[in-house]
Computed example of a mutant assay.
Amino acid sequence: MLAALLVVVLAGCVSTGPDTEFLQPVHEHKPRSVLIVPVKNETIDVQAPTSVLATLPMVLAERGYYAFPVNTVKTLLENEGYYEAAEVHNAPPEALASMFGADTILYVTIHEWDAKYIILSTTTTVDFEYRLVNHDGTELWHARKSLAYNPNNQNSSGNPLVDLFAMAITAAIERAAPNYLPLTRTANAEAFRNGQRGLPPGPYDPLYIEYYNGLAINE
């Protein structure tokens, strides 16, 4: 029994760190550039893809990757006859990557983009799916992120009547103009910088060399 207990204690003392096995394809290919293609929108809000594209390049740049300018990408794709996001998502990755000289392609699908109004509360929800594919068509990374925002989840003033009036006004404002952009920016940042499921540092991140040196030591 003492020997068995010693084995358990020693095993518990071993620090395995976060599980990065799912990132093995990224580690092998070490991409430098990301081609963000038009976003596939499964909702009825036609402005949703624009908001997503407006926030993605900065998030990827902060993570250490070069992101091709999304407006230039859109223009060049349209010149090649790709006018719809669904067409781009169905196109051969090899053809898209060679068109721009990109290492990888990022496909994003919007599953939910909605503001639900219930009595005195409005909850804004976004749900995005991300796929990073190598220039040869190999999937390197996949993630999905869903976030919700309710402006009434704030501290109470202590006066029930004042709080009720404030909730009604806040809910009406959020319903009329949902706060999508900050929520989208947060969702993208959490998806790519997540310590458990996010992308590793890219080559333009100061932590890039340290990160990959650490992997070599642990192998």
Rank of each mutant, 00 (worst) to 15 (best):
A191W: 03
T50I: 12
A177D: 14
P92Y: 11
L56V: 14
A115S: 15
P160C: 10
M99W: 02
W113A: 01
Y204C: 03
A143F: 05
Y65R: 10
Q154D: 09
R197L: 11
H142G: 10
A166V: 09
L147F: 04
V88C: 04
L207D: 14
A176P: 01
M167L: 02
D163A: 06
A91N: 04
Q154I: 12
I118K: 10
I209Y: 06
T170G: 07
H89G: 10
E87T: 10
L132H: 09
T20H: 07
A67T: 05
N71I: 10
L164T: 00
Q196C: 00
T20E: 13
N188P: 01
N79G: 15
R185F: 09
L183A: 07
P206N: 08
G195P: 02
S15F: 06
N90S: 15
Y117T: 13
L35V: 08
A48C: 01
P25I: 01
V9W: 11
H29A: 12
S33C: 09
T170Q: 12
G195H: 03
V14Y: 14
T50F: 11
R32G: 15
A176S: 14
L96R: 02
D136N: 15
A85I: 05
E112C: 03
E94N: 04
R175C: 02
G195V: 01
D45F: 08
A91P: 05
A166R: 11
L147Q: 06
R63A: 15
D114F: 04
V73M: 02
G64M: 04
V70Q: 04
Y130V: 07
A172M: 07
D45E: 11
V126K: 01
G12R: 02
A102R: 04
G17E: 04
T72K: 15
L120D: 12
A189V: 02
